[in-house]
Design a protein around this nucleic acid. Structure first.
Lengths: 339, 339
DNA sequence: ATGAAAGCGCTAACAA
DNA sequence: TTGTTAGCGCTTTCAT
């Protein structure tokens, strides 16, 4: 593992000082054309490349942002990271990526790593904003950060999200308007996600407002969810749900599969709606009814805003983006078919 | 933007030298318990955290690997990155992420960025291994890297992939064995991906071997593919394909949607098979027949191997992992139904 | 067990 | 237009 060429060697071989090389490489000051040519020649023959680490140490700026999401396997986060990465790249920033797998210890250690490596800022989605040690840790630093997806309750930091409770309320109300009364909710571990908590609040509120008692909130695991058994169980019997409200599209997809396998037709026998609006939901057959979060836009906004805070001292800001109800084919009216 | 606490201040306030602080923080040498306690006190009261940049400069090691994939929106890459990230984290490495959007210029600039920031190694998927400027650039450096997904033709670097041609051949042969003769192939821009080129070679080989002439290879865009129109067109008329071989699962999903919308039943009227084996394909209805690439494993292997090369000087290695044919519900026998 | 000191590769202020 | 110089924050010999 031989050492890299350094600015010092280039300077020497080009017969100039390192300051001149630096100026030439960065276009940061006057350089005579003779000097520039001599330097360029050495550079191209030696494969010299300014050492970013040296620069970072000197300038105390890494031009790197730390990004922490629960998982890349849920397209909602992959899309958000896509948005972040593109926006960051456009502003001359790099992305240091970590995923937590919904594990709060990993959240903390990821943030710790980001801090050690002196990222200029962070964008993160934590399990539960209200009880996040990672956020608490961040609070002890002066690193600017943007919370993404998490409902924002406290002030003092930036965030971008949608109104999860309201969207869930609207979705479930729409189900009720279609005649459904026995509406179950499928949710990942509630303790794993404050979004799910908000969504179930919206669900319960919609039922309550219509004088309906909840059929039940079914908790299943998050990664590789297999709600099959629970659903099959719930689904047995005469009083089985006529509609399922799933806390995420990923869960909805599994739910549909489980229902179909147990002989149900969607949406004729039972309606299913999801939440998130992942792109692939549109391609399913039936396509998924859901509340669409503008994930990529959220990522773009988060990155742009963070960069503005870093570069221009812009102040903290909380953005609540509109969601959109996607009228998919996976829900329908309650009919005689439902007994 | 106030400056961080530095090791120098900690040393001063603890009444020791910076060398002792360094030893204490890193457990890298003897430190008396009095010294340690004094240091710990200052550290916790000041929120001191060793500056990774300073360390990187001194040690000439970043413990960072650069990861470049075409897009995170295709779950195949999201899964691979997931594997990389977890394996890297376990070995004490961080991930600097970039995506190319299948743009070779971005491939080059991403690699350039990685090099400037002195990543210890790289893992990448390029559009076309044979004509990659990014790879060429890497060749001029001594940075270890691992190619992922790309078929490996040259030697001199590490890679992990599957045999795309063979898998495609097997898939299309299976279609033929099911009685299909009019088999079309749907592919993203061929110039965008050497995998697609391999896969279409496998497709053509299977047809040739059975004395069948290709119905046609239909090129569509990669991101947000909407092959609807082309397929609708191809699908008109009596001699329309009875089976579609799609170069990726994402394409297959769009294709199924387009076919269903034009009134076809899958697999009764027409069979569709994909390629990649993204998880969600199993949840579709009908579930997707496809060749499964072990994407996450590939990521894990790539990361572990890269780290071994970096840390233990392990030598270059090319791994071809087995693929697996997933017997989905989206294909069937040719019947009278097909005219 | 500890500290002094050198230096990693760079930028930027300053002097020339 | 150029060069000298002083660090940026750290690790790591080498003495003590």
């Amino acid at each position: 593992m031989k050492k890299d060429v350094t600015i010092k060697e280039v300077a020497q071989r080009a017969g100039v000082s390192i300051a001149t090389v630096s100026r030439a490489m960065n276009d940061s000051g006057p350089v005579s054309s003779e000097a520039r040519q001599a330097i360029l020649k050495v550079v191209s023959s030696s494969g010299f490349r300014l050492n970013g680490i040296g620069r970072q140490l000197k300038t105390a700026r890494s031009h790197t942002i730390g990004v922490l999401v629960p998982s890349l396997k849920n397209p909602i986060f992959a899309d958000a990271v896509t948005g972040i990465e593109h926006a960051a790249e456009q502003s001359g920033y790099r992305v240091l990526l970590a995923s937590s797998r919904y594990d709060t210890n990993k959240e903390v250690s990821a943030v710790e790593t980001f801090l050690i490596n002196r990222v200029d800022g962070l964008i993160l989605t934590v399990a539960d904003e209200k009880n996040s040690q990672a956020l608490q840790l961040l609070g002890t630093t002066k690193s600017p950060f943007v919370l993404m997806f998490n409902p924002c309750n406290q002030t003092g930091y930036s965030s971008v999200s949608i109104d999860n409770r309201l969207a869930a309320f609207e979705l479930v109300s729409a189900l009720i308007n279609r005649g459904h009364r026995r509406i179950a909710m499928i949710v990942g571990k509630l303790s794993d996600s404050d979004r799910s908590v908000e969504r179930s609040a919206g669900y319960e509120e919609a039922l309550r407002k219509n004088g309906i008692k909840p059929v039940g909130v079914i908790e299943v695991g998050f990664e590789n969810p297999d709600p099959g058994t629970q659903i099959a169980e719930l689904n047995r019997g005469l009083r089985s749900p006529t509609a399922y409200f799933c806390s995420t599209d990923m869960l909805a997809i599994s739910t549909i599969r489980a229902l179909v396998q147990s002989g149900k037709k969607i949406p004729d026998d039972v309606s299913v709606v999801g939440f998130d609006g992942i792109t692939i939901g549109e391609c399913l057959i039936p396509s998924l009814a859901t509340a669409v979060q503008p994930a990529e836009e959220m990522g773009v906004w988060a990155a742009r805003h963070l960069v503005a805070r870093i570069d221009k001292g812009e102040s903290v800001s909380n953005l609540v983006l509109p969601y959109r109800i996607r009228q998919g084919e996976s829900w329908g009216r309650l009919t005689a078919n439902h007994l």
